[in-house]
């Protein structure tokens, strides 16, 4: 697991107040929404803010979100390719 994967999991736990969850409990390929981690639309807004705040990535097309926020792996891939900080 890369540092970015771990960092992302920590940020998600903190930002989304997943108090009972540990980094080790989130699988890299686990779905973040729906029957995976169970995140919802308010969490999606928080993740958009997280991308911009921590990695300088502004999502221009909201439709991209579904693909990017599929799992920790897809988020990490997108950040690696587009990060400005």
């Amino acid at each position: 697991m890369s540092d970015l994967h771990t960092e992302l999991k920590k940020s998600i736990i903190e930002q989304l107040n997943l108090e009972d969850m540990e980094v080790s409990e989130i699988e890299n390929d686990e779905h973040l929404f729906g029957d995976g981690l169970g995140l919802d639309s308010i969490d999606a807004l928080e993740l958009i803010v997280l991308l911009e705040k921590d990695y300088g990535i502004k999502l221009s097309d909201p439709n991209q979100g579904k693909e990017i926020f599929n799992s920790i792996n897809t988020m990490a891939d997108f950040i690696e390719k587009n990060r400005t900080r």
């Binding site: 930002q15 308010i42 807004l45 928080e46 803010v49 911009e52 705040k53």
Partner: peptide
């Protein structure tokens, strides 16, 4: 600048 939406909502 950027605000966390949850607390605002």
């Amino acid at each position: 600048g950027l605000l966390s939406p949850t607390s605002f909502i």
